[in-house]
Design a protein around this nucleic acid. Sequence first.
RNA 1: CGGAGCGUAGCGCAGCUUGGUAGCGCACUUGUCUGGGGGACAAGGGGUCGCAGGUUCAAAUCCUGUCGUUCCGACCA
Length: 568
Amino acid sequence: MRTSQFPLNTVKEIPADAEIASHQLMIRAGLIRKLAAGIYTWLPLGLRVLRKVENIVREEMDKAGGLEVLMPALQPAELWQETGRWEKYGPELARMKDRHDRDFCLGPTHEEIITDLARNELKSYKQLPVCYYQIQTKFRDEIRPRFGIMRSREFLMKDAYSFHLDQASLNATYQVMYQAYSHIFNRFGLKFRAVIADSGSIGGAVSHEFHVLADSGEDAIAFSTESEYAANVEKAEALMPSVERAAAGAAMQCVETPNQHSIEEVSQFLSVPPQQCLKTLIVRGEDETLVALLLRGDHELNPIKAEKIEGVKSPLQFASDIEIQAACACKPGSIGPVNLSMKVVADRSVVAMADFVCGANQDGKHFQHVNWERDLALPELADLRMVVEGDPSPDGRGTITIARGIEVGHIFQLGTKYSEAMNAAIINEAGKNQIMIMGCYGIGISRVVAAAIEQSHDDRGIIWPKDLAPFQVAICPMNMHKSDRLQETVEKIYQDLSKAGIEVLLDDRKVRAGFMFSDMELIGIPHRIVIGDRGLDSGTVEYQGRQDQASQELAMQDIVSFIQAKLA
RNA sequence: CGGAGCGUAGCGCAGCUUGGUAGCGCACUUGUCUGGGGGACAAGGGGUCGCAGGUUCAAAUCCUGUCGUUCCGACCA
C-alpha cells in the first residue's frame, strides 16, 4: 500500500474528550472517528487492525471446533420475553418498535437467539456437543460510554455458545475454549492473565475472565505470589483469619465522639488504629427488612459477595439515612452491632478483632473495648470484603498482590439457565427429551484493539505487536521525487517485500523526513526502512525497529530476508 | 437518572464579564524557497457562533427553553 492511495488521517492535536492513551492514540493515528457518544467509525487503517484481531480469533475458534454462524443484530422481543430478560435487562437494552408496532431490540448478546436456533436445529444427542460462534456487532446502551472504543455502545464481539448432553461434556469444551483463548491472546502478543471471575448477570457457575494487563485497566486482579491463582478481586476469596483472637481487656465503655462519623475520623479521635474499629453498614434486605454488615475498619465491602448473602437484596442497595434513623435511632456514622435489632452478618476477619471500637447507636457516641462473646454474641460470619495486598492466597500458597487489567474475554459455564427457560431439549440415548447444558464464550474484538494500545505505546505513539500491526514495514524514501534512480530502487524494494507476502506501507507523499517518521511512529509500524540517495551508492538502507534506539545499516539485497527473520 | 462543565471553520481554542466589522494556532489550496525528525515566506478557501424563542436600534455576547456532548457516582466484552 502507498500513502498516496491510503490516506493516514493522522492528527497532531490531542482530542479534548479523550482521556486515556488508547483513546487519544486511536483518534490521533486515524484508526477511528466518533460519530456519536460511544459510536465510532473505523477508518481504513483501524479496520486493518480490527480484521487482524478478528482473523486470529476466527482461526483459533475454527481450530477448536467452533462452527461459525451469523445471527441478526436486530432481535424480536418474544425470545427475550421467554427468558424473562426483556423485563430484567434495564435501559441498557436498546428497544424499538418496527412499523407494525412489534417490539424488537438491538442485541447486546445472543443467548436467546442461539438457544432458539439450537432447539430448532438440534434433535438428537448424536449431534452433541456442538459449539457455534459468530463475530457480530453488539449494542449496549451504556449509561456512560467512555474511553473511546474501550467502553463504547456499539462494539464488535466474538461470542460462542456450546451445547451439551452432560456436565462432563461441558467441562471438556470449557477446557478446549480455555486453551483456545490462551492461544488467541498469545498470538495477539499481549501480556494477559486468565482469572477466576464472577459470572455476573449472564448467570452460571464456573467462569473465567481473560484480562490484558495494563495499569489503566478498569478491573483489579488478585494474584498469588507463589501459585497460579488469579482472580478478579470481585471474586477473590478472603479466608478466615488464622490468628487467634486476643483476650478481652478493659470493660466495654461508651465514649463521646461528637461529629466523628467515618472510621478515619473516629480512629483519629480516639487514637485507635482503623483495624481496631468495626465498620457497620446497613443494606436493604428482602421483604422490607434491613441487614447490618460488619467489616474491619480498614477493609472495604465487596458488593458482589454481599448481595449473595441470604436475606440481602440483590442488587445491593444501601439503606437511606431515614431508614437507618428509624431502625437504629441514630445517623449512619454511629451505628454498631451492640443491641442492634436486625439481621447481622460479619466479615470473617471480624472474628479476630478484640477490644474494638464500634458505634453505640446514639449520635455522637461510640463503644470502646468491645469484645465478642463477652459484650455481644458473635454474629453469622461470611466472606464480605475486598481482598487486599498481603492477604493469604485462597489456594493456600503465597500471598495476594493486586494488578490492573482490561477484561477482553470471558468464558462461562451457563448450565441450563437459558435452555430450560426456552425448552431447548434433544432426544437422549434413552429416547427421552433432555434439556441441553450450555457454555458461552466471549471476546471483545474491538476492545482488544484498544487494550493492545493501552498496554503497548510510548510518547511517540502506538507500538503494535507484530501480528496486530496494520502494516509490518514502512518504507520512507528521502526526496524520492527528485531522483529517478531512487524511485526505481524504492519501487523494487516495495515489490520484493510485497511479493514475499509482507504488508508494506510505502510513504510516497512529498513530505519531509521528520513528517514521515513521526507519522509512522504514531501509527505504530513495527519496522521502518529509510532509503536515500546517499545509501544508493553504497547499496545500503537504514533499518530501525519501532522500539530500537538507533538505526542500523542494511545491504539492499538482504532486506527481504532480514525482515522475514524479524517477522518470524 | 442524579450532580458539574462545554457547544464559535475539519481539529484545538480565544472572544461573552462590560451587546456594535467573528478571531488565533493546526489542518487544507496555490506559488517560491527548503529538503534526514511534524520547515519558511507569500497569497487564498472555509463560520446561519448547536437549535428555537425572547429582550434590544443592534445578540456569539443578556434571558428562557431545547438538543447534543464531556466529566464525577450505579453496568460490562
